[in-house]
């Protein structure tokens, strides 16, 4: 029927919008960062020297800031998230599990500016007091990110555990294994891929998180491995400077957005790799 054909085409167009969107995002960001690649050059863009007033646009400090804060956030957030997922799927009584499930959903909805604000007025002064530093930096950013990746990892982790065949657990318990032995030797290994995907998606959230990190990381451009020193991340640098930047400065910022985009694509490809290996 002709009508059905048109409707099918219209619906297909809706689905194809995802392709159009990702294509346009890539094209625009790439085109706007092209001047930076040709005029500043890729080696300079990845150098440690960042001083826009003098025409130096190296993003190394921000790249390291992004990687360190993501790593820190996952070191705290991943065990907590996986643990919570196991707790609500295996250990908690059903009413408690429901409370946690609702709670985690709610936590996912709390705006990142609000979490950043509490980082700023509670966490930063706390870190400042115990370390004698200014309180801003990777340590503060990591804690904030841990809170933000927790809902992602918990929700996806619990979903993985729930979708495991019940026979696995039954067989293990029937053999006389305790709950902990079942979790450690049977359930976690069986759900390995799904849990890994949950952590990688949490990582994506951490790399891209902007506002909360910008509020606690200190927004300096110094390259540092000290978690208690103010530094910056790719996202925080973008949001701080994009408004005013022109010319080469703006192009260099677009190049940083391109790096963020490439980092998130690497994550997606690695997730494909993880899930494909399981199917094979």
């Amino acid at each position: 029927m002709a009508r059905e054909k048109y409707i099918k085409m219209l619906l297909m167009a809706c689905a194809s919008l995802s392709f159009l969107a990702i294509l346009l995002i890539f094209l625009f960001i790439f085109q706007e960062s092209l001047p930076a690649i040709t005029r500043i050059g890729i080696p300079n863009l990845f150098s440690a020297a960042w001083n826009p007033d003098k025409g130096q646009y190296g993003m190394l400090a921000f790249l390291i800031g992004t990687l360190l804060s993501t790593l820190g956030g996952l070191l705290i957030g991943a065990p907590l998230g996986i643990g919570t997922a196991v707790f609500l799927d295996q250990v908690a009584p059903s009413r408690m599990a429901n409370v946690i499930r609702r709670g985690v959903e709610l936590l996912a909805g709390i705006p990142s500016v609000v979490i950043g604000w509490f980082g700023l007025i509670i966490l930063v002064p706390f870190i400042a007091r115990i370390t004698g530093s200014a309180g801003y930096g990777i340590a503060a950013a990591s804690v904030v990110l841990a809170v933000m990746v927790l809902p992602t990892i918990t929700a996806l982790g619990a979903e993985t555990l729930r979708s495991l065949p019940p026979e696995l657990k039954e067989a293990s318990v029937a053999m006389g294994a305790t709950r902990w032995q079942t979790i450690r030797k049977v359930l976690l290994p069986a759900g390995k891929e799904g849990i890994l995907v949950a952590v990688v998606l949490g990582m994506g959230r951490a790399i891209g998180e902007t506002m909360a990190v910008q509020m606690v990381v200190g927004n300096s451009s110094q390259l540092t491995l000290n978690p208690f020193q103010p530094t910056g991340t790719l996202t925080s640098n973008l949001v701080t400077n994009m408004g005013e930047a022109v010319g080469n400065f703006r192009a260099a910022l677009f190049a940083q957005a391109l790096v963020l985009l490439i980092l998130s694509m690497i994550l997606i490809v690695s997730i494909r790799f993880i899930t494909r290996k399981k199917e094979a």
């Binding site: 973008l238 963020l260 985009l261």
Partner: peptide, 10 residues
């Protein structure tokens, strides 16, 4: 997985 700041800049 595209970060929201990249959407913003786009």
């Amino acid at each position: 997985t595209v970060p929201s700041i990249v959407f913003a800049i786009f």
